[in-house]
Design a protein around this nucleic acid. Structure first.
Lengths: 200, 200, 200, 200
DNA sequence: GATGAATGAGCCTTCATTCAT
DNA sequence: AATGAATGAAGGCTCATTCAT
């Protein structure tokens, strides 16, 4: 019974998070009301506070929970591969796939996550750093195995790669000026990041 | 007299924008009060509204004005160059230089500009698109002159390049996990974007 | 439970309206703060907005609700009568009685209601027109039954009669220069409106 | 030169008052800005304060000045007449004529003047009482000369008569529900007030 | 006298959060 | 656990008034 109760509790908690993803994506964290989230979740405003300490806590919890899922997903995908180039290509394609599957979540992550450090005091976004380190691991392995240039600064490269694919994804989501498909974006960014843009 | 009056008005307007850059960078647009901006500018709250229609208008005006300066700066820098590779390297180094010179402005741009489309109804950020098109121009010229790969999709590449350098800049500003100098970042991203990360 | 809840809600709504009547009567709508009304009602400022959309809405709701009561009261009083002269005299005496019983409400109505058309966009004061039409009905019946002059323009007369008794009531409330009782006012205005001021 | 200067000063003062009449009539005293008035007068905001102590003072001055003109006008019209009935009919027709000639002024008087006692502390509207007393004088003379009923309470009747014609005028101005001309209104109210509505 | 930029007090309204039911 | 009415602090914005020019 206790187990079931916990499961139910988590279920409602997830419902709220799912509602928050939608509402925050649509209006942005600051323009969205707790009431909006509650309404979308089909519950009363006060109920939010049974599961979360505050509006900020809801956002952070959303990050953490979703990030766990994402880290898990990437981890599983990469585990089966051994070639660093395969890994990098898979990482990139998985990223775009994820964006495609859940635009709302992507919007919340890209926009709100960026400023989390500023408005959420004392929140150190460890999970995001873990995510970046997945790229770093691939690069490190690739460097050790002589795939990637030895003079590559991995701390910079991991950020650069993330920034590149993330910005392309954002512009695709925004839809403005988008004259490309995600598939093409995936192929193009992979190729350019790996081989550069030079015609050699 | 009229000239002087207009100059004075612009001077105060700029003072407010400068104050807003600092305050928005520190607290974020939503957490910052109009009072905070006024205080930093050394004026009364109401004076803000002599120069700007609303808090939103202040942010947009800040974007537009600063973007004009930035576009001008890049335009001048690139004008003297003819080699596409030189142009791209200069573009990237100028970007990092700009970030270094005015961290506050960079923060406002990177964080608040991103979500502008969401919370500022009917604001189409044309100036940002113009900025991206400066990269596109370089790429196009380079492609025509056979420097860059013919199969490169410029609409994607311009975004990718911007995303790459911008994210590296952001992480450098945030300071967290930053184990690199901007000079190194410049050299590394230029090299990787141009020649790729492959060890060939 | 639902019934009780609705009853309680209406009770509090009425409390606020009652407070608003007092405060608006004392200070006038524009000089009165929402805070004043809340304080008089013994609630927090924000609670006003649980029951009313805005300060304007509070005033309009006050009109509508009170007008409903007034229309009902007059309607009941007149229903039992058949003679048009009796009806008119009763209408007038009821008006003065009402004024006497609730000076505050009278002040709000006489002063604020007048300008409602100007400051409350899109508010068409239908209830007031209904009130005037109660006089019109009496006049019409009286005209048909040959009590009142056939050449009487009822659309003008109804307004004239209302204006006459309302202005006397207002001056009585203002107290300035008032050298008469409401009873006398009732008797005098009834007589003058019905028989004129001529000594015939 | 001093005289001329005073004349010029009065001219500008009048310009402001005229602008205020329009603006207050359109928007109501509270919804109208000093800026609106200044703009309509074609002067700077601050100039208002060269001629008037405050926004309230502007309204009061407007009343006083316009009332002087009105009292003068009525006084001149009535001076030539000797018959109390003629006087009363002339009073009423002059009132409607005045309304017709300057709707804006009429609106300001009818709406704003009413509440003056409430929002303008310590303002005793003596001129309005003088106006009412012009009616009282007519009634008194008529009563002494046996034209009007001896039991008529003049303090009540003067208010009643004013209220009657003023309300008809207001409804005519508002235009809503107005199915009559001012000429008809004049004839009807005169007749009804003098002879009553009874069919005798 | 005329100006209009600057002021800052004040107000309506929102909304995250609480708590009695 | 769930509710949603109530709270009250906080904030954007207005505008009558002032004053240096």
């Amino acid at each position: 019974m206790a187990k079931k109760s916990i499961a139910l509790k988590n279920q409602k908690r997830n419902m709220i998070i799912e509602a928050a993803v939608h509402v925050f994506a649509e209006k942005g964290f600051f323009n969205a009301n707790v009431h909006d989230v509650a309404q979308r979740a089909g519950i009363a405003d006060g109920t939010i506070y049974v599961y979360f300490k505050s509006k900020d806590d809801l956002l952070i919890s959303l990050f953490e929970q979703k990030m766990d899922g994402i880290l898990d997903r990437f981890s599983k995908k990469l585990r089966t591969l051994s070639d660093p180039l395969d890994k990098l290509r898979t990482f990139i394609s998985t990223y775009y796939q994820m964006i495609k599957e859940d635009k709302h979540l992507a919007e919340v992550f890209q926009v709100e996550l960026r400023q989390s450090s500023k408005f959420l005091k004392d929140y150190h976004n460890q999970k995001f750093l873990d995510f970046l380190d997945m790229i770093a691991s691939i690069l490190q392995q690739g460097q050790q195995e002589n795939f990637f240039r030895p003079e590559l600064n991995i701390d910079i490269a991991k950020i650069m790669i993330f920034g590149a694919i993330d910005e392309v994804a954002r512009q695709w989501i925004l839809g403005a000026e988008t004259k490309f498909s995600l598939e093409e974006a995936c192929q193009q960014t992979s190729e350019s990041l790996i081989s550069g843009i030079l015609n050699s």
